[in-house]
């Protein structure tokens, strides 16, 4: 047994001791891409009678399996349309997979699409509470965290201004501040390591680094090889909804670049 193999074995043993906090088992996701959208009963009946009810089946994910261990920063790479975002949404519970299962241990903070439930007619304050409620926080929790959220977003002077008067950067800041106000067990991020101006982006990155240091498991989707290389310990390469490769970041990045 040579030393390189030994090293590998040791690492593997180390990994086995850590718990897998995200287990994705044989997940497949089917979308029906209707050639034309059939929204109405009349259309449906007509199409049905003419036997034109064709659905184009599209497997956005097929048979995806992997595990993310506790405390690790895990990257998902892939070209546009490879199924990365769908995979994240399946893990976050937004989509229910057509086949397979996702097992998750711990509280998840999704940084996939910020600002769920934001209504432009309402003030920043009202929207913070709404968005917090959507993420499953209680009223007590939101009252406690409100101060901190507004501090981080640095939007106190616009507290009672309707969101429609905000710039898109400000809305993004607010969304980010709410989503990261928790110390989650698992953070799921889709390309948004920074919103707003460069100052705010730096603070976002700080915050995420802090989380990682405190033991948060991070699942990170990115096009950028640089980001994945600098942050992730292991990675997954997606290709047309399938797992093309899965392992050490270096190998995966090399493979991704070569394709």
């Amino acid at each position: 047994m040579n030393s390189a193999e030994k090293q590998e074995n040791l690492e593997r043993q180390e990994n086995q001791e850590k718990r897998a906090v995200i287990q994705v088992r044989n997940v497949s996701m089917l979308f029906n891409l209707n050639k034309e959208r059939i929204d109405s009963l009349k259309e449906y009946v007509i199409k049905f009678l003419r036997r034109q009810l064709f659905f184009t089946e599209f497997w956005a994910l097929s048979d995806v399996s992997f595990e993310v261990l506790q405390g690790e920063v895990f990257g998902i790479l892939g070209l546009n349309g490879a199924g990365k975002s769908t995979l994240l949404k399946v893990i976050a519970g937004v989509y229910k997979p057509t086949r397979g299962r996702v097992l998750i241990e711990g509280a998840v903070a999704p940084l996939i699409e910020l600002g769920a439930g934001f209504d432009l007619e309402f003030t920043a304050r009202e929207n913070v509470f709404m968005n917090g409620a959507m993420l499953g926080h209680s009223s007590k929790y939101m009252l406690e965290r409100y101060q901190e959220i507004m501090d981080f977003a640095d939007l106190w002077e616009f507290e009672n201004v309707p969101l429609k008067n905000f710039s898109s950067g400000m809305v993004g800041r607010l969304g980010f501040a709410i989503a990261t106000s928790v110390q989650p067990d698992i953070l799921i991020a889709d390309e948004i390591l920074g919103v707003g101006d460069f100052k705010f982006q730096a603070r976002c990155e700080d915050r995420i680094r802090n989380m990682i240091q405190n033991g948060t498991t991070v699942l990170l989707v990115s096009h950028s090889i640089e980001t994945v290389k600098s942050m992730c310990s292991r990675a997954l390469l997606m290709e047309k909804g399938r797992v093309a490769a899965y392992g050490d970041t270096e190998d995966i990045c090399a493979l991704y670049e070569s394709r």
């Binding site: 937004v94 699409e113 959507m134």
Partner: peptide, 9 residues
């Protein structure tokens, strides 16, 4: 729709 597309509720 905007809500259920973004987070699980």
């Amino acid at each position: 729709g905007g809500m259920i597309k973004k987070v699980y509720i």
